[in-house]
């Protein structure tokens, strides 16, 4: 069985933190979405790792395909919201959203 901090796990966790950093640090809403997508990819990579270690790629495939689908739906909904943000405020910077309250 794998060690908790094996290379693959560290890699996936690193990608997750990278995505989280992008969500927290970026001002542009599109870049925030890219951050969320990066986090989603870290999760998918970790499921693939799990399937590889457990010799159970069938379930891992099923999970990964569904996870990709859900990711796509979430991004579509958030993009639709961002289109509305742009229509109302002519800009998609997250910090301006807080200032332009009202």
């Amino acid at each position: 069985m794998t060690d908790l901090f094996s290379g693959y796990f560290t890699l996936c966790f690193g990608i997750l933190l990278l995505g989280l950093y992008s969500v927290i640090a970026q001002r542009n809403l599109i870049k925030i979405i890219i951050g969320i997508e990066i986090m989603g990819k870290a999760v998918i990579l970790n499921f693939i790792t799990g399937g590889f270690y457990q010799n159970n790629t069938g379930i891992a495939q099923a999970i990964v395909v569904t996870a990709i689908l859900i990711d796509a739906v979430i991004v579509a909904v958030i993009l639709a919201l961002i289109v509305n943000v742009f229509r109302l405020k002519r800009g998609i910077l997250a910090d301006r959203m807080a200032q332009l309250k009202g």
């Binding site: 069985m1 794998t2 796990f9 996936c12 966790f13 997750l16 995505g19 989280l20 969500v23 809403l29 925030i32 979405i33 969320i36 986090m39 989603g40 870290a42 999760v43 970790n46 499921f47 790792t49 799990g50 399937g51 270690y53 457990q54 159970n56 379930i59 891992a60 999970i63 996870a67 979430i74 909904v77 958030i78 919201l81 961002i82 943000v85 959203m97």
Partner: peptide
Amino acid sequence: ATKYAIMSAVGSVTALFGISVLFVYAGTL
């Protein structure tokens, strides 16, 4: 809604990562 959607999406991805860690060690969910 934008704030809610972004926070919720980050949260659910984080939770799914926790689930995937379980999958790596248990091989079943």
